[in-house]
Design a protein around this nucleic acid. Structure first.
Length: 937
RNA sequence: GCUCGUAUGGCGGAAUUGGUAGACGCGGCAGACUCAAAAUCUGCUUCCAGCGAUGGAGUUCCGGUUCAAGUCCGGAUACGAGCACCA
């Protein structure tokens, strides 16, 4: 067993003493490579296995890039503002900074123990005034450019605690802690208008190498939707209101409007008869949190205001309701409701008995020329007692169908259905349950040799008794009436119209798909897309609406009633003005407090009586006592690493131009929308101001997967017995073993369960390498047997490191070592190159082996090996011979062998002959250098 | 409910992007070394049948395209992640 403890200690000391990984950022002579890890929050528990995984990955790439001649920047720092330190301060009365510094020390020691190649001279902490001076400065720029605003907005307010709560801190309308009532209320808040960047953020996603799923998540988060706004006038008043809709094409189907209970107009339009009901409802809604209001499976609630709106397209007067299914914070806070074509409106209208008007028909079948147009019905009769449905079995003349028929002139769908049911089946004691949305069906009738286009109405009846009259059939109607169960219908009713009708009546809901418009005057016959644009034209022309784009992304609330965050550089002056601090007043440093708890729900900084006082040009004022949210500092820290000591600007522009963007960024997927969105917003903003050379900060992003416990379950509080402490592994097996094991576990992005035996396997491999290097096999001689695999290994490892497929790179190293073990001579050149390949993954052992091979100093800057492409390809190859797609033999062929010769070899194989004997060879497919397939009949 | 992702031996996972499925590791079995064990080295290890040659089955399930499908297309199921009344 090699002495990993001694070796690792020795080389860590060497790197530190020699400043090996110091990056001279002003050295522009080499190409740059900026590798970045998501910096940790320095919690008390230290590094976990997931940190090690991501950090090792960037470490490997950094070390390889350095050996390939790049000037590599690979920094590490701490996201050191956060809740645990705050809680510690509240409970002990000590400044959270002390607690934070202690944790940072632990983290630094652990990171150093793992041997990462960070340039520790460029570290930073977001809670360091030297750093947050610039966080405050950027906030100041956002404020002066109008992106940071102090505005009224709805929040969860807990009177008892005197604080704003986030949605997850509110349960059943009460505060999670203490159980005090929480209400929704408009409050002045500092926000950042991130929606202003929505288009740029969407556009930027097209130009960056990020996981598709993360991009998709960001797109969903931004939530762009294209539609129109429509203006509705309130009957009997001069008031009007706007709604936003993505479906202006369904305007003819709007049968009511809904406003959010908080909508400004509600009080003004509510009639005196409805006022009490409206007020009660508003009160109920105000006590609900957003979370509750949007809870799944909740029944729709609402109240009629007594007022009516005019549908601009047909002048229909439709009632205005208020309901909490309409959110004040999205769109205009009011909607037009089209119950026929929107699930939520359908649910509401059904409950409140509001008319449902169909304006779009689903189309089935394929349109043909010269169709005959008819109106018809599909009648489904349900026998509740026996749980069966009435069908007509036409057997070979059309299969199983329901009762159907053509409407006579002026006959209603219901009358037609009752008549047809009686004629075809004799049943008369039936009751209508529902009449569903019409379907536009194209079909061909064999018996009449004609194409038809029918508008069919599906109807559902319930059988009251089995009373029958005699059937009234035409001579050519040869069928059997049968009662069958649901499963039989789903299996046997093949006709598209009948199957669709059954689906409709069984599960009544809004028709949200595409189709053709009906009941819509100038839109009739158009499909959804055509109708949307036609309606937008109409609205624009008649000055009662226009095209509109909405984003789901809301303001980013940028203040917290906490101590341990960046103080806002803001003062409220007595004269009502907001004063933002001058540059020379930054950083605004957090004051020491006697008491870190916020009293009466006030922010803890309210306790800093003296600190709060401020005077500007003789006008007194008080400082803002909220602090910035946790994601403020992390939104730009990657810029500061480039020039962390700069006291004049947040970073030197020339350096930024050289080093940005980050070439590789690795971190957990939990930041897919939070941190990664905020960083893009700030960088985009700074780009617009000419302060960032790039719009997008992170060129390539990869998420490492989660490392699970040995049981396959997430490590953590729930199953502490399965938690793995990386430091235990470092102490008992060595940092190189841990790094190797985590990289060999599987693909970087995948979630993988921990396996202790796998750790031992990794150590065994390192030991096996070490034994080889002390075995005496390493000689200044050549060994042809190893030549091919040597070049293959360089290629595979280089390619796989580049593409972050570390598991297969390591696998190739194992294959190489296994091959060397079978040889007597391990050429010294090969031995040296192998150490270089090993170095990124296991740098301590690699340095040691490099020294053992007679070299002085570090391997970190040795030239990365290259391979001879000609040596990688094999001149002879074994390929498979298939007969009808099944492998029957393998043959050896030369790479440049003629097709005829290959064919002949294949056909002469004994086992191949056996399988083609007595059969006709239809063709022989020869794929060069890959496979031969002989097709026989 | 919507969006995205995943599914391969006893286990973690490979598979040149349509061309011999199961590389490499773990585990297991056997052999060598040893008085013995551990360590180490060397084999074997998808399942079924067979002493073997070999044959059959096989990448969650059903269907399709193709000379050829883990890989492409359509559908289903399960698990995971995110969003969740966004009009």
């Amino acid at each position: 067993m090699y002495n990993f403890r001694e070796i690792e200690k020795k080389w860590k000391k060497y790197w530190e003493d020699n400043n090996t990984f110091h990056t001279d950022v002003w050295d522009f002579s080499k190409p740059k490579f900026y590798a970045l890890d998501m910096f940790p929050y320095p919690s008390g528990v230290g590094l976990h296995a997931g940190h090690v995984e991501g950090y090792t990955a960037t470490d490997i790439v950094s070390r390889m890039k350095r050996m390939q001649g790049y000037n590599v920047l690979h920094p590490m720092g701490y996201d050191s503002f956060g809740l645990p330190a705050e809680q510690y301060a509240v409970s002990t009365g000590n400044n959270p900074n002390g607690f934070t510094q202690k944790n940072i020390e632990t983290f630094s020691n652990q990171l150093k123990a793992l041997g990462f190649d960070y340039d520790w001279s460029k570290t930073l902490q977001t809670s360091d005034p030297k750093f947050y001076k610039w966080t405050q400065w950027i906030f100041k720029q956002l404020y002066s450019d109008g992106y940071a605003k102090y505005i009224d907005m709805p929040v969860n307010w807990c009177e008892e605690l005197g604080t704003v709560l986030s949605n997850d801190e509110v349960i059943d309308g009460k505060s999670e802690r203490g159980g005090y009532p929480v209400v929704r209320r408009n409050m002045k808040q500092w926000v950042i208008d991130q929606a202003a960047f929505a288009e740029k953020l969407l556009e930027g996603l097209n130009n960056i190498d990020w996981p598709e799923s993360t991009k998709e998540m960001q797109r969903n988060w931004i939530g762009k939707s294209i539609g129109a706004h429509v203006v509705f006038k309130v009957v009997g008043t001069d008031k009007e209101f706007k709604v936003f809709t993505t479906r202006p094409d369904t305007l003819f189907g709007a049968t009511y409007c809904v406003m959010a209970p908080e909508h400004d107009l509600v009080d003004q339009i509510t009639t005196s008869e409805q006022r009490e009901a409206v007020n009660i409802y508003k009160k109920i809604c105000a006590t609900k949190s957003d979370l509750e209001r949007t809870e799944l499976n909740k029944e729709k609630t609402g109240v009629f205001t007594g007022a009516y709106a005019v549908n601009p397209v047909n002048n229909e007067e439709i009632p205005i309701y208020i309901s909490d299914y309409v959110l004040a914070s999205y769109g205009t806070g009011a909607i037009m409701a089209v119950p026929a074509h929107d699930d939520r409106d359908f649910e509401f209208a059904t409950k409140f008995n509001i008319p449902i008007i169909q304006v779009l028909e689903e189309v089935t079948g394929t349109e043909q020329e010269n169709e005959t147009v008819k109106n018809s019905i599909v009648a489904i009769v349900y026998d509740k007692e026996n749980d069966k449905y009435l069908t007509i079995n036409w057997r070979e003349n059309g299969g199983r169908l329901f009762v159907d028929g053509t409407k006579k002139e002026n006959e209603s769908a219901v009358d037609c259905a009752i008549r047809e049911i009686a004629e075809e089946t004799g049943y008369t004691d039936i009751e209508l349950v529902s009449e569903d949305f019409k379907i536009n069906h194209h079909y061909y009738a064999y018996n009449k040799d004609k194409y038809f286009n029918i508008e069919a109405t599906p109807l559902l009846f319930e059988l009251k008794s089995s009373k029958q009259v005699s059937q009234n059939l035409d001579d050519d109607e040869k069928f059997v009436v049968e009662w069958v169960d649901k499963d039989t219908i789903l299996k046997e009713v093949k006709d598209e119209l009948h199957a669709k009708s059954f689906e409709y009546v069984l599960n009544p809901r809004a028709m949200t798909g595409d189709g053709i418009h009906i009941n819509s005057e100038f839109l009739n016959g158009l499909n959804k897309e055509e109708a949307i644009s036609a309606m937008i034209d109409w609205l624009t022309e008649h000055d009662c609406g226009s095209k509109q784009i909405n984003y789901r992304m809301r303001e980013w609330i940028f203040a917290r009633q906490r101590y341990w965050g960046e103080p806002m550089p803001v003062v409220y002056l007595e004269n009502g003005d907001i004063h933002i601090l001058d540059d020379d007043e930054l950083p605004l440093v957090l004051p020491e407090l006697d008491d870190y708890k916020g009293h009466g729900g006030k922010a803890p900084l309210e306790n800093a009586i003296e600190w709060k006082k401020y005077s500007h040009n003789g006008i007194d004022g008080v400082r803002e006592t909220s602090t910035m949210p946790g994601s403020a500092g992390s939104s730009w820290y990657f810029l500061r690493y480039i020039d962390p000591e700069n006291g004049d600007v947040f970073a030197n522009q020339e350096l930024l131009r050289h080093w940005m963007p980050v070439d590789l960024y690795i971190g957990g997927p939990e930041h897919a929308v939070g941190h990664l969105m905020y960083s893009r917003i700030w960088t985009n903003y700074l780009y617009d101001k000419g302060l960032s050379p790039v719009k997008e900060p992170f060129k390539k992003l990869v998420h490492q997967g989660m490392i699970l416990g040995a049981n396959g379950i997430k490590m953590g509080k729930r199953y502490p017995e399965f938690a793995v402490d990386p430091m235990d592994i470092v102490n008992n097996y060595g940092a190189d073993t841990l790094r190797l094991y985590e990289m060999f576990m599987g693909p970087l992005e995948a979630s993988k369960p921990w396996n202790q035996q796998g750790v031992e396997g990794a150590q065994k491999f390192l030991d096996r390498i070490y034994r080889l290097y002390v075995s005496g096999k390493i000689q200044d001689r050549e060994n042809e047997n190893l030549e091919k695999i040597y070049h293959q290994t360089i290629k595979k490892v280089t390619d796989d490191f580049e593409s972050l497929n570390f598991n297969t790179a390591i696998s190739q190293m194992m294959i190489f070592i296994n091959a060397v073990y079978k040889e007597e001579v391990f050429p010294k050149v090969y031995a040296e190159v192998f150490v270089k390949l090993l170095n990124p993954v296991c740098p301590h052992l690699a340095e040691e082996l490099w020294e053992m091979l007679g070299h002085e100093g570090t391997i970190a800057f040795e030239i990365w090996p290259t391979y001879d492409a000609a040596k990688v390809v094999e001149e002879e190859r074994e390929i498979a011979v298939q007969v009808n797609g099944k492998v029957r033999a393998t043959i050896k062929i030369a790479l440049d062998e003629a097709e005829e010769s290959i064919k002949e070899k294949a056909l002469n194989e004994e086992n191949v002959c056996r399988h083609i004997e007595g059969k006709e060879v239809v063709k022989v497919i020869v794929i060069k250098g890959k496979i031969i397939n002989i097709v026989v009949k």
